[in-house]
Design a binder for these strands. Structure first.
Ligand SMILES: NC(=O)c1ccc[n+]([C@@H]2O[C@H](COP(=O)([O-])OP(=O)(O)OC[C@H]3O[C@@H](n4cnc5c(N)ncnc54)[C@H](O)[C@@H]3O)[C@@H](O)[C@H]2O)c1
Ligand SMILES: NC(=O)c1ccc[n+]([C@@H]2O[C@H](COP(=O)([O-])OP(=O)(O)OC[C@H]3O[C@@H](n4cnc5c(N)ncnc54)[C@H](O)[C@@H]3O)[C@@H](O)[C@H]2O)c1
Lengths: 227, 227
DNA sequence: GATTTGATGTGAAACAATTCACAAAACAAG
DNA sequence: CTTGTTTTGTGAATTGTTTCACATCAAATC
């Protein structure tokens, strides 16, 4: 296996997420093994790409027999470190925070929101399955549950200060729903999820599609951009 | 201006979103003009990249004087077709749908959720600022408001059927929050937003970062992957 | 108004990602 | 056990993206 380069990981890794989604889907349909072209077709990429990506991550199949779905999924679990449990804190229990805190798919994938926090005293609810704490207890909880990843769902005006506070208390990775680009010191991973942008990009591509000015296969181009 | 190729658009366009976010931020801080390196620094890319990207989209600045933020933003509005209003429908008024329907940033960016839909009769609320209709009225509303883009926030099991129904009724673009890869005919744009994946990718990178096995500058790498 | 300075805009060069093409492996059939 | 078929795995070729380098221009200074 060629040692993968810093760069090679990038796009392949992103596609590994995509492949997994496809595999899960195929599995529920009763499929047990796939060929590179089956998966490729499902994921909307080429078979070459699938094999090349697997090659980067040293995922092996059976020549002629293709790949075993369970094997693949297990291998991918390892890649994403999902053998372990991951404790997470959620800051900001407004509309978005509430919805996220009720989302059961996180738990199904070994990601547990162990506590939530809010600045508003009326929202605090210490005795509960999923407590809502004041910010003053952040450090204590992060330390107790060895939390390394947080979700920020506070208004955009507070997002940076909340982020700083999190980083100060040992958080290393953040999924941020506030529409601001958070500034962090080196060594911290920020994933800004901007739902307005997601909508807008669809609008952009739909517009291109309907005005039909020169750009063909927009939907494929779009897919390409994402994966 | 060199005619941009199908491909050249891809990554540049994605960064244009990023630049705009930065510009908005800088503007609220009272800044009025930027140089390529100011913006680059803000966005975490190189100045060359900024200029090259602008070049793709034929965005011009003043030699020596840099770029005027308002000009830039206006230019970007055009790129994203935000001079027009965009009517949107939202399907599935559960936790996620409710949160999204209350999100005021969409309106601020000329994207109006004109109606929502749910299969559950107890949720229907026809007389309201933002009505919740039964699915039977989908076609009527889509036609009346010339809706082309929809948001899917129904359980994963129903997402595909809802999507099919939307496409049948003239929807051309979808932002899908259900964790399934929707299948659509050619000419339809799907943006699958998978929040579990967003969290998992942060966990992945945090893990890489902390185990420190060979990969340096993960946070930059991460940024790179996204933009 | 000539000269210096500092920034843009963009081909060309360097680098990265994808696709091609085919050897190697696995299995089936004769 | 040999031959034919099918699919993987991966260097090599191609295609796409980023960085470099510098001509070009606009403003400031003399
Ligand atoms: N609602 C949505 O659908 C949606 C969609 C995309 C993005 N967002 C973004 O997510 C964030 C939250 O949105 P929302 O609609 O839930 O807003 P919200 O106003 O309903 O909730 C914000 C919550 O954060 C709390 N908060 C405020 N400052 C805080 C601080 N310094 N520390 C801790 N808690 C604090 C508030 O008390 C409140 O409970 C916003 O940045 C918004 O732009 C929301
Ligand atoms: N809650 C979250 O934070 C969150 C986060 C990410 C993704 N998601 C995804 O978003 C989707 C919705 O999640 P949720 O938590 O809001 O679920 P939910 O169960 O609270 O809401 C789903 C809503 O969809 C309606 N519905 C069901 N079938 C329908 C159909 N065929 N046509 C129209 N409406 C229908 C239901 O009546 C319900 O109101 C799910 O696919 C979920 O995986 C949710």
């Amino acid at each position: 296996m060629k040692q993968f380069t810093k760069q090679a990981i990038k796009k392949s890794l992103k596609r590994i997420f995509l492949y997994r989604a496809c595999l899960v889907r195929l599995k529920t349909m009763g499929v047990e093994k796939v060929f590179s072209y089956t998966l490729a077709n499902e994921a909307g990429v080429t078979a070459d790409q699938v094999r090349k990506d697997f090659s980067e991550f040293n995922i092996k199949g059976n020549k002629r027999g293709g790949y075993d779905i369970n094997d693949l999924l297990e291998r991918m679990e390892k890649i994403f470190h999902r053998n372990k449990d991951h404790n997470i804190v959620l800051i900001g229990m407004g509309n978005m925070g509430m919805a996220l805190s009720k989302y059961n798919k996180f738990v199904q994938r070994n990601m547990n929101i162990v506590a939530t926090f809010d600045i508003d005293p009326f929202k605090h609810k210490i005795r509960s399955d999923l407590p809502i704490y004041p910010m003053s207890r952040l450090k204590e909880i992060i330390d107790r549950f060895r939390v390394r990843v947080a979700i920020i769902a506070v208004p955009e005006i507070s997002a940076q200060e909340v982020c700083d506070e999190l980083v100060r208390n040992g958080i290393k990775g953040v999924v941020n729903f506030a529409p601001v680009l958070l500034k962090v010191p080196p060594g911290i991973v920020i994933n800004n999820v901007n739902l307005c942008d997601e909508l807008e990009s669809v609008i952009y591509y739909v517009h291109q599609l309907m005005s039909g000015d020169g750009l063909k296969n927009i939907e494929l181009l779009y897919r390409d951009m994402k994966y």
